[in-house]
Amino acid sequence: MSIGNSPEDDRPSIPEVDDDRPSIGRALQLARLEARLTVDEVSAATRVRVPIVHAIEQDDFSRCGGDVYARGHIRSIARAVGIDAAPLLDQFTAEHGGRTTPTPAAPLFEAERIRSEPRRPNWTAAMVAAIVAVIGFVGFTMFSDSGTGGKDSVAEGSVTPSPEAGKDTGKPAPSKPADPKPDPADSAIANAPKDKVTVLISADAGQSWISAKDHNGVTMFDGLINKGQTKTFTDDDRIDLVLGNAGAIKLFVNGKEIKDDFQQGQVERLSYTKEDQQEADPQAG
């Protein structure tokens, strides 16, 4: 006489294995071939990597990462090749005893964990470096132009005293009227070619920053001219000017003075062509 059920009665029933049926991997392979699908196509449809698909078709489930993942792969591949996954899952349970082997998390995600984050470029440092470089270049240019101002004055028409002028001979020097200082306009008129545009800039009232470009946009001059200095520019077609302190400048175009009422500290953008020989009026820059 027995009281209650024996322990064997509580165990889950395991379906009997039909020795004539193909293995799980062979069944999936035959179904894939019948569906005219390649392993790559099955992998793309199921997101199961190609080496794992090959291993499952060889009844090697060790690369699946555990029984739970193996069942999921079998179900996905069976759906992709168009067969019922239930008999294959029952067969897998019968062959593997229904055990689920959890896969340690570390091996699956170890590659992702050790992958270093890409370093982002430090745009703030790059911008600061660029600003410092620009400020340094501008300061160097202004210092260089200021330091060479006296040389430009001598080169552009100033008279160098003769060594004999300061020698004391003991005799009174004969009185002689001083030569009048040449007007920059006279030089501009005399030297202005008829087939070109000529612009003469004279810093009569103070220092000014100027920029001059030819008709191709090439910079002819970009810097400071000191009081008393002059600059002359010639081009075949057009000259574009920017005057940083227009009130300190006298301007001669094609031999004639421009009579505009420029103010101290005023910035002017002007453009002149060789057709301005008669009127010498500024055009809009």
Score class of each variant (00 low, 15 high):
211 S>Y: 02
236 D>Y: 03
278 Q>A: 15
151 K>N: 08
15 P>L: 05
264 Q>L: 14
274 K>W: 04
7 P>G: 03
164 E>W: 07
86 A>D: 11
205 A>F: 06
12 P>F: 02
281 D>L: 15
129 A>T: 14
221 F>R: 11
195 D>R: 11
4 G>Q: 01
25 G>D: 04
58 Q>D: 04
145 D>L: 11
218 V>W: 01
216 N>A: 13
111 A>Q: 10
181 K>F: 02
260 D>Y: 11
206 G>P: 00
115 R>Q: 08
11 R>F: 13
274 K>G: 13
154 V>P: 00
170 G>C: 13
280 A>T: 09
171 K>F: 14
222 D>W: 09
43 S>P: 04
87 P>N: 02
277 Q>I: 09
7 P>M: 03
223 G>W: 09
77 I>N: 00
42 V>N: 05
282 P>Y: 01
95 E>P: 06
277 Q>E: 09
105 A>Y: 12
146 S>V: 09
56 I>C: 00
262 F>M: 12
221 F>C: 04
199 V>I: 15
271 S>Y: 06
170 G>T: 13
108 L>F: 01
234 T>G: 01
37 L>T: 01
188 A>V: 02
269 R>N: 15
43 S>E: 03
244 G>M: 07
175 S>E: 12
175 S>V: 15
36 R>T: 10
26 R>F: 11
221 F>M: 06
83 I>P: 03
213 K>V: 07
119 R>P: 09
115 R>G: 05
44 A>R: 14
